[in-house]
Amino acid sequence: MSTIMPSARQRSLRIWAFWAVPALLLLLPLATNAYTQFIVNGMLISVLVTLGFTLVIGNLGQLAFANTAFFGIGAYASAMLTAKFGLPWIVTIPLAGALGALGGFLASAAALRGIRSYYLAIITLAFGELMRWAYLHTKPLTGGTDGLPLPREVVFGISLSDDTLKFYIFLGVTVVLVKATLNLMRSRFGRSVMAVRENEVATASLAIPTARVILVTFIWSGFVVGCAGALFARHVGHVFPESFGMLHLIASFAMVLVGGLGSVLGAVLGAVLLTALPEYLRAFPGMEELFFGLIVAAVLVAMPMGLASLLRRLSPIFVERYYREES
């Protein structure tokens, strides 16, 4: 019996590895300047955006591209609730998540009506463009092309324009959402999500309500990405419709693929790498896009299963599991 179980040591190593990352990150502001801190904050947002995206297209296997719509909904919800309704920004994070979840619910309606693959792709892309159109044409609420600035705020006596303070808040939100998502994936829910991807007909034969699995996955994805939107609104301080277009969608898609489709770890790696990469490429003015494209292509050719597959080969603690044996 003991030989077939992943060893207790391996399990504790995995828990250790997970918590060591945020623990070390607490010290990061000591090593950054204002500019690099801003980049790192953007990274945390990308981690959540990529995580929500990979759940739907990787784990659930649905070709749905409404991710940027969830992101925009979250960002505008947070901006509007702070600027127009005077709510403290912190409070708008879960509210933006809830509205992102509503977006997820709407996107899932298409999938649940039996619209799949390319048809789902085009209908969800249209959803994203429709949202962008809405931001542009509801000027009294969203500011239209002028965008919507967030008011200045002070928390714990520190201005919310301070990137170090934002970093700690972003880090907290990111860790909570990544951990919660891991809890979900390492449970009967995560198994059901994978099962629907692999064989939806057989999944139903196991007393698993497949429609509910699809619905809840979209809702959770929308929640995570909606929260990321709220962080983004504070990160840039002023939301514009252009931030939520095809460019953002394609960039998130690249992060999902470079990290490894359907992998929580991959979402983190892909987001970090592809947020950092353009900064390093600034050393080659005029060639940035070319190098960026080449590097993405090279990673995908060398590792079709993404960066996460590299770590999996290094140590079994990085293998994605859809059950949880702790406690």
Binding site: E198, V201, T203, R321
Partner: peptide, 11 residues
């Protein structure tokens, strides 16, 4: 065959 190939036997 109705197995889920990407999941392990236990899963």
């Amino acid at each position: 065959g109705g197995l889920f190939p990407a999941l392990t036997v236990l899963e």
